[in-house]
């Protein structure tokens, strides 16, 4: 059976295709303005990549913030359940998933079967999310992809204390004005995300093995900050960003 999971997030859309319990391919693109189009485009894009015809797909599950706008999906499932299933597929030992997405962050505790035991999400504020990093990258005029590596060169991470993204941005600007090294500022930003997310994740319990999902997992600086703050080792798979889509495709397979 061929199934597809489509994860329409606030910043990026992801799709994954599963055939007979095996991951065949995945794709990521920017969501853009129209979530409805994003679902369609990522789906056809993935099928084109893989040379698979639309009719060959048996079932589709949509997830993410735009899950209800993917009209051709058979079912909508939240990204919380999908991330748990996806992480369990990638490593059945995983008991906790930390997902930092565009507009929210979540911690999910799962049991040995990949079932969600409990979850916590950040409140309405953008601090501790992918969007927060984007804002900071703009303020620092650094490409977001370079953030992770740059922060590893820090010798004394700066302290960013504000919980509000806008105020944190002005803290960053005043650090720049004071001549603080970029690496230290970026490391400080990562630590501030780390402490927020770990505090939230502690509500559900950070039981090892811990896996990180979501696009921010590709930022080594955030992963290190999370490890430092929680004192736990965090696994990052090559499929971190499409983990939710993988979970959705698996759920579609039933």
């Amino acid at each position: 059976m061929i199934t597809v999971g489509i994860d329409v997030g606030s910043i990026s859309a992801k799709a994954a295709l599963i055939n007979a319990g095996e991951l065949i391919g995945s794709r990521v693109m920017l969501t853009g303005y129209n979530a409805r189009n994003a679902g369609e485009n990522i789906f056809t894009g993935l099928l084109d990549d893989l040379g698979i015809h639309r009719d060959a797909v048996d079932r589709i599950v949509a997830t993410g913030y735009g899950r209800n706008s993917v009209a051709f999906a058979h079912k909508a499932v939240t990204e919380i359940t999908c991330h748990a299933v996806g992480a369990h597929f990638q490593d059945p030992a995983v008991r906790c998933v930390i997902d930092i997405g565009g507009q929210d962050s979540k911690a999910i505790a799962l049991d040995s079967t990949g079932r969600v035991k409990d979850f916590a999400m950040n409140d309405k504020c953008a601090a501790g999310t992918g969007r927060f990093l984007e804002v900071m990258a703009r303020a620092l005029e650094v490409d977001l992809d370079a953030f992770g590596k740059m922060s590893l060169k820090a010798d004394r991470p700066a302290a960013i204390s504000s919980l509000c993204t806008v105020f944190a941005e002005s803290e960053v600007i005043s650090l720049i004005a004071r001549g603080e090294r970029r690496a230290n500022i970026i490391a400080g930003i990562h630590e501030s995300i780390g402490s927020r997310v770990v505090a939230m994740a502690n509500r559900v319990g950070i039981t090892e093995p811990v896996m990180m999902a979501g696009g921010v997992a590709n930022n080594i600086g955030v992963v290190k900050a999370l490890e430092k703050r929680s004192g736990k080792t965090i696994l990052v798979s090559a499929y971190a960003q499409v983990n939710g889509a993988i979970g959705a495709a698996l759920i579609a397979a039933g």
């Binding site: 919380i80 359940t81 079932r115 999400m121």
Partner: peptide, 17 residues
């Protein structure tokens, strides 16, 4: 709304599973 919508859906998925 979208945050709360997702939380309720996810919570109900946990209850149903």
């Amino acid at each position: 709304e979208s945050q709360i919508d997702t939380r309720i859906d996810a919570f109900m998925e946990v209850l149903k599973s």
